[in-house]
Nucleic acid binder design. Sequence first.
DNA 1: TCTGGGTGTCATATA
DNA 2: TTTATATGACACCCA
Length: 769
Amino acid sequence: MLSLKKYLTEGLLQFTILLSLIGVRVDVDTYLTSQLPPLREIILGPSSAYTQTQFHNLRNTLDGYGIHPKSIDLDNYFTARRLLSQVRALDRFQVPTTEVNAWLVHRDPEGSVSGSQPSSGLALESSSGLQDVTGPDNGTMTRLDRSSHSGRGHAKGSRPLNSLVAGHRVAQPPSAPGSRASVQDIDLIDILWRQDIDLGAGREIFDYSHRQKEQDVDKELRDGAEQEDTWPGEGAEALARNLLVDGETGESFPAQVPGGEDQTALSLEECLRLLEATCPFGENAEFPTDISSITEAVPSESEPPGLQNNLLSPLLTGTESPFDLEQQWQDLMSIMEMQAMEVNTSTSEILYDAPPGDPLSTNYSLAPNTPINQNVSLHQASLGGCSQDFSLFSPEVESLPVAGSSTLLPLVPSNSTSLNSTFGSTNLAGLFFPPQLNGTANDTAGPELPDPLGGLLDEAMLDEISLMDLAIEEGFNPVQASQLEEEFDSDSGLSLDSSHSPSSLSSSEASSSFSEEGAVGYSSDSETLDLEEAEGAVGYQPEYSKFCRMSYQDPAQLSCLPYLEHVGHNHTYNMAPSALDSADLPPPSTLKKGSKEKQADFLDKQMSRDEHRARAMKIPFTNDKIINLPVEEFNELLSKYQLSEAQLSLIRDIRRRGKNKMAAQNCRKRKLDTILNLERDVEDLQRDKARLLREKVEFLRSLRQMKQKVQSLYQEVFGRLRDENGRPYSPSQYALQYAGDGSVLLIPRTLADQQARRQERKPKDRRKA
DNA sequence: TCTGGGTGTCATATA
DNA sequence: TTTATATGACACCCA
């Protein structure tokens, strides 16, 4: 009970944190007081989210005690865990087996774990604190052979009850004034809380300091330190720190306590009293966990409490009925469901990657390997509790605000059709809602008004709302939203991070800079480089290009990015092997101080393979000329010299390769520009999309209001109509219909239904055509 | 040692 | 047909 409550609360806390990351805020109290899908399903996913091992272990352990639940479903799993706790407690309390057996037999003659639980999920236990369980063997409880447990690493057979009692006697109440929870309560609460560890939502998940504490405990246990003297002084915390955790089921219990073994076992009555005192089952149980404090702990929950109820959904106002709360939740879950597949993995990465000082990671310890983060996607979560396919404005939901708030409701005839059906059976809807909006109406749904909004939302809106939209909807500026999405989508090939790209440059700027560069200028041919160029700026640098839209032939621009001076490849791998032996760039100081010989040597090393070949073949002009001269001048140049066939062939190859090299560089640069432009386009489109969605939501909202007004007007008009005898018309027999000229006709309902059906078919036929 | 990014080169397509 | 250009693919180097 208690742990489940805390579990729910803190589970919601984590969920809230997750939502707050994308700008959606959820009020914890609102959730807990509403009839929403069980949060544990949202957090942990449906029952299938529990691992087979967890179920297996639990069942085995219960089997060991002779308890054989017929089935452990989601709720029963909690029940069974609590049962296991109690049975084990009795076992540890060294209550004589016969006494316990007799008690159990007396307690329950049915021999099965009760499967029915309150729907709220918050009251799983009977007031007695013990489940109606027995083993299959005529209701007797068979104790597990302790020898089979002795090898599991902790001396569980000899310790328990007395140590608890010893701790209780000396510990000082740490609880806040007014809390009924005594030190004993807190301690046992702590123990019981820890028993939910294997559910994947133990406190250690949320409490970093607690995990630290556990590590300390482990360390202390490993050291075998007997800290008996400190026990009384440390009180409850020391008790909590002296817990051992059952590795098999996650159950926790106090470690050896000084003097514990000297104590005599409590009686069964004392044990039960203790259990009941520490496990205040039932709805009225007090929970020391202060939900509001947790709510306040969420960074995004800093709003005044009065505002928090409005935070669940950005779409609706705070005056919605409780059913609308459900609707909002469905909206939220639908949105989250769509985002989950993209967000799930990367979200956890973000959480884990948070710096140590990050309040998220520090306070809530969203650590890796927790089932919540790793195993449960929000997609699952929404499926678990949202099996009903509620659309945002589904007829069932939408009718309720009217029913709850409108004073016109009593006018609705109760004997035949509802207001909605009356309204829906007329063509009035068609006047206000274009036929295509009614396209999703169910033909078999009877005279109900086909809901246009549900269709809209089902088919389009919920498909389109994205993280970006949410972020912007919640006030993020587009850049923040873009960054957020980029973080969530860090694995995509395309980085949307505009901060690293010169996205401020227009495409015209980019293209102009590109055209100005032309196909000349870049060359690694060192013979065209002076010494300074050779020192580091070796032409086209990708990073430089990305940041500065560099021009190939202007390495001096690199000065704007000093840190790039040392970024540069010396692609001398195409040099002759002899030249590669010492191809490393000498430090600039060496060059400046060095002799001309050294400079020549260095230049020689900088020469490309083609340059070496040209030199070897005694080509009488530079590679630069070979490559960059126009065809006519190039041919003219060749004609000036008497060149062998080999020389001519080499010259042509050099020209071809040189041109192709520049072409490749330009090609790559263009490709990069294209990518950057596409990124910018994506950002623009995302902004537009978010804006359009925002407008769409606004339109839908006003549409809904308009629909309500029409309903009111219809009801008012219809209610005032009287036949020749002065009696009101029956809504089951008559309906109002707007004519094309604006007049309102009272027609038989059968006729109205036919016309309504005909109107519904039109868009469908149009679609088929 | 592996990996990603940058680069040169070749083959091929296109203008 | 020749030339220039564009681009995919590959290999290599380097951090």
